[in-house]
Design a protein around this nucleic acid. Structure first.
Ligand SMILES: [Mn+2]
Ligand SMILES: [Mn+2]
Ligand SMILES: [Mn+2]
Ligand SMILES: [Mn+2]
Lengths: 221, 221
DNA sequence: TAAAATGTTATGGTTGACCTTATTATTCCT
DNA sequence: AGGAATAATAAGGTCAACCATAACATTTTA
């Protein structure tokens, strides 16, 4: 952790909130699940965060980043995604591992390093998963993409970004070639929340609904 | 901190021991001072470290890295110095800040990242301060250099490396051009532990004895 | 050899971030 | 409206890493 800064835990809570809901309120239980802590712990932490003015908590409704909290979160996301670019483009590390590897580095990165890294990388606009990189001040631009799980059967769409975080899930998506830029046709949605049958390139693939939530797509222009 | 690894604190204690004495015992008070903790805290921590088999403590004599502890320490030093190379050569960050900036990153660096970074940098042999970078397995090679404070008056020597860690001290050494590769002549050693008068390039410089401990030099071949 | 300096241990405390179990409050749904 | 599900609090605990103050042990040095 960089001197005089927020703790790693604090940064992770704020980042999780930014990743879970863009601006919307997030329930503490979703937060707890995402961070692998009990909901009691998440409640305690949210209290601390709101005492610091980083989040606002409406009991029984959910938590919300304050503008101060959103600034911090965007900054963490920026650091992470810049590191992902470096790890992928220059160190040639495994695509599926990038999130995890960068998730440690992000908390140990001083502002000087962040800025110099952005310059070194040529101020990239997105990370290797297709997610936008917030710029030095403001926050991330909104993309008009939707999860693959919401696409009607028969449509052909293009993968914009992948928002999974677990190396295991990312490895699986990679195996199915569900990578940014790919065209995908939704052939069938099996009943009872069964898997989506997809055509990716010239192969067919079956994708569980939960994983389909992570794959963001846009209509082909 | 990387999953399932030692804490940042543990790594810093081990690194401090490696930096303070190469193989020799180090007194707990020196350790405490270097890490800016009280000697009571350092004693407690040393107990924990020796329970983990990372150091051995001979009461009233000092602490010693075990071979397990030395392995860890070398690895931390390797990570740090590799990051220093990256921050200096690629991100063009300020020389005097490198130690501090890399000191955060070192604890957040997974083995995959360390290895790939070394390859990316072309397996450098030394950091920008002239200190050797341990290789992936073994430890650092011994250099035959001595602190500037031990050089006889009249000698001309070459700076091999600078072992200071504080940005402030490093900035000062940089201002005096006491950088690796530079030739230095010791003109005079003032009495009562007064400063050393040096000729560095075509300028004269006064250097306190304490800072002279950080500047390692070798005879000119 | 005795006093000074240095090193160690004992006690008791703090803080952040976790945990479990149990209870209470609110919201959602039938 | 009432029960189920969900959310929040309360109470008590753990663990790593720090702190201060005080007592005790050893080594150094005069
Ligand atoms: Mn992280
Ligand atoms: Mn990414
Ligand atoms: Mn460090
Ligand atoms: Mn260095």
């Amino acid at each position: 952790m960089i001197a005089g800064q927020l703790s790693e835990s604090t940064e992770m809570y704020l980042k999780a909130m930014a990743e879970l809901g863009e601006g919307e309120v997030v329930s503490i239980s979703r937060l707890a699940e995402r961070l692998s802590v009990t909901s009691v712990s998440a409640n305690e932490m949210v209290r601390r965060l709101s005492e610091q003015g980083l989040v606002s908590h409406l009991p029984y409704k959910g938590v919300n980043l304050t503008s101060k909290g959103r600034d911090v979160a965007c900054n963490v996301v920026r650091r992470q995604r810049l590191w992902e670019c470096f790890l992928y483009n220059h160190l040639k590390l495994e695509w599926a591992q990038l999130y995890e590897l960068a998730c440690s580095l992000e908390h140990a990165t001083a502002p000087e390093v962040t800025d110099a890294l952005a310059v070194f990388l040529g101020n990239p606009k997105t990370c290797p998963h297709g997610n936008p990189i917030p710029d030095a001040d403001g926050c991330l631009p909104e993309l008009n993409s939707n999860p693959l799980s919401t696409v009607p059967v028969g449509d052909t769409v293009r993968v914009v970004s992948v928002r999974a975080t677990s190396t295991e899930v990312l490895r699986h998506l990679q195996k199915l070639s569900l990578l940014p830029g790919r065209e995908v046709t939704l052939l069938e949605a099996a009943p009872m929340d069964g898997p989506l049958m997809l055509k990716v390139g010239d192969r067919e693939a079956a994708l569980g609904l939960l994983m389909a939530e992570f794959v963001f797509v846009e209509p082909i222009s």
